[in-house]
Amino acid sequence: MSRDGRVPHAANLAFTFEKMLQHWGIDRSRVHVVLRDNARNMVKALNDINLASLPCMAHTLQLAVNEGLLSQRSIIDMVKTGRKIVGHFKHSPQAYSQFHDIQEQLGQPRKCLQQDVITRWNSTFYMLESLIEQRRALGAFATEHDLPATLTMHQWGLIENVLTLLAPFEELTKEISSSTATASDVIPAITMLKRLLEKRADTDFGVGTTKATLLEAVQRRFSDVEKEPLYMLATVLDLRYKNRYFSNEVKDQVKQELQTALQRETSSPPEEPAAEASMARGPDPEEASAAKKPCSLLFSVHDEILKEKTEVEQQLASPLSVQVQSYLSEAPIGRSENALTYWRINKDKFPALAPLARAYLSAPCTSVDSDRLFSLAGHVADERRNRLSGDKAEMLLQA
């Protein structure tokens, strides 16, 4: 959006992209993919200048979950009541002081309720989670003090079922928001989500309409991911997934795309050695430890899919090239392992595929990590530090 509040025209965005590439001396052939939001003007701008692009998965997931939450009146009313309760404490320090006293009397730690933000669905998840955690303290508070609204027994049960329903979405949002998440995670994640939403559960009581709407929204908004070559190649070149997540009808197309990309790569001049740095990058220690934590629901589907697809894959396998066939016969690595680390170690074993992996696994699946960087930069270089040089600002950001 421009400074005067107007939405830029696609032609203006396209011109800005062209100017940016020229200013930084970036050859168009080296732009693998541009990550964008779902705005039509942005999609058209990138199409007009022939730059491949992918939508931010987190943004699309936000739209899908919002559709689900807004599809059922009882859930809308429950969320509104929860917001009124949280808002009461946020606007009254005295009420919070009394609430903390009650928490201490009950032997609970002093905690505040989570306020949600409409533009972030998972903040609503955390708000409901905090209400459930403080249910006993809120009940005790309501017996002695006035609240603008109270939750009924049915609404408390509804909160628990909504949290169970949205837990896989929250788990996935954290997963794809890490700096090590790539475009290869999109197809497997959507496949796992759809399978979970198709299953019936005891906790579906009261949230059936929301669950059906969530499934429909995920299917519709991510309907083309399995057919998108950029996602296809990223997934098949990630040894955690390979071609196990593709339907039988699409597997032959995936292999053909891989073979075509392989031929294109071998006929083009080699890339500069500096690009090796991106392949050698391992996962951040903190993120790696977080990724190894057991995932109770969503990612348990991963093992199911690998077991189901093994026999089918062997039956359908057809010789394309020795290198491609040899790679596809490799056993998958664990989900918590880093695919780029695998390719760094095995680049001599698969010399033609390794450059492809470096290119297609370099693209993130969300803009969350870059948004964090811009937010951090905004705290470092502000109106009070407007004379800070670019070099010093970069040093502060890396510190």
Rank of each mutant, 00 (worst) to 15 (best):
E265S: 09
E272S: 15
T182E: 03
D371W: 12
G25M: 02
G378E: 01
R372A: 04
A14F: 03
V254P: 00
P355D: 00
L388N: 01
T16C: 12
V312N: 09
L113F: 00
A357H: 06
Q256H: 11
A339V: 09
L388S: 00
N12R: 04
A149I: 04
E287Y: 08
R358C: 11
A45Y: 11
R200Y: 08
R195S: 14
H302A: 03
E276P: 06
T152M: 09
V7L: 11
V79H: 04
A217F: 02
A137I: 02
L320H: 11
Q114H: 13
W121M: 01
A331M: 09
D48C: 07
S178W: 11
A234S: 15
S389A: 05
V162Q: 01
A14S: 06
A142E: 08
P332M: 01
S123E: 08
V301I: 10
L239Y: 07
I76Q: 14
E265H: 00
D27W: 10
S179P: 03
Q259E: 14
G87S: 06
S2L: 15
S267T: 03
C365F: 01
T152D: 01
T210N: 05
L233R: 10
Q72F: 06
F205H: 15
Q314V: 08
P109C: 07
C56A: 07
Q98P: 01
G139R: 15
P55H: 07
I190E: 02
L35C: 11
Q323T: 05
S177H: 08
P273G: 10
R240F: 02
R195G: 03
M279T: 13
Q98L: 14
Q314D: 10
K347T: 06
K242P: 05
E276G: 09
H100M: 08
R195H: 11
L61D: 00
L172C: 07
